[in-house]
Design a binder for these strands. Structure first.
Lengths: 130, 130
DNA sequence: TTTAAATTGTTATAATATAACACCATGTAA
DNA sequence: TTACATGGTGTTATATTATAACAATTTAAA
């Protein structure tokens, strides 16, 4: 039930870079890295990022303004995301817990409203930094 | 178990403004609003904001870069926050659900790690926009 | 009272992100 | 085939968000 989005050239270049990166990447460090491939302007990067986020290939870590590839095969179009973030080394890990996602998708606020779209960021120390 | 932080002048001015605002406020619209009170530079605003966030009087909505006063009396020092955000009118509501906060505080990731600090942002449509 | 910690004021600049416009490719409907 | 809608590209300029660095001052505690 989701169209395969063949990525365009810019989208593919930027997705590959993020996907191979061991760390989340900032928009301007992406820009720097792809300049040799002909992507010269911030807008070219942001447009590709926007599209990649929209189709669920990458996620934006809002509290850090960084981007990571989606490592949750189930969320090709992902509007429900959860991450842990190390407050020392800034390592980010995507959390895929059916328990958690079910709990959040079924959570009702005090007006009885449910939300299928959410973003959860946990903060703590990763194994190495603990 | 939390020191009363009497606010400094700048902190008080900026807290009052945010607290009275019916909507979350952006840093630079805060700056604009307090210029008549002698706060002239972005840094003066950001410093007050940082402190107010640190002591839990306000929260930052990371996905929107806006600030709102804390309306959850239990979180004077709040490191565990949850909000709903209307995708049309951008109305933000702080969620205080003991069920939710207990669930998240007790959530263990696949390494068995627990997190007392988190930020959760739900997205949907508010009553008016629905 | 002197010392440490926090806050202030200031100028400058860094980092993050979008507006506006012209152009091009592709698919599709008349 | 033409037209036209959609989405992507390239470009310049600019808007928005946030911090660096430094000096002075206030505050509160030892």
């Amino acid at each position: 039930m989701h169209k395969e989005h063949p990525l365009t050239k810019n989208q593919q270049i930027i997705f590959d870079l993020i996907d191979k990166s061991p760390e989340p990447m900032k928009a301007y460090s992406i820009l720097f890295s792809v300049q040799k491939k002909g992507i010269k302007a911030p807008l070219q990067v942001y447009r590709a990022l926007d599209k990649l986020v929209e189709i669920g290939k990458i996620h934006k870590i809002e509290s850090r303004n960084v981007f990571i590839a989606c490592h949750n095969s189930s969320c090709q179009v992902s509007k429900a995301t959860a991450f842990s973030i190390c407050e020392i080394c800034e390592k980010v890990t995507e959390i895929s817990s059916t328990g958690l996602s079910k709990y959040l998708a079924n959570f009702k606020d005090k007006d009885g409203m449910k939300y299928s779209k959410y973003n959860l960021e946990f903060f703590g120390l990763c194994k190495k930094c603990r």
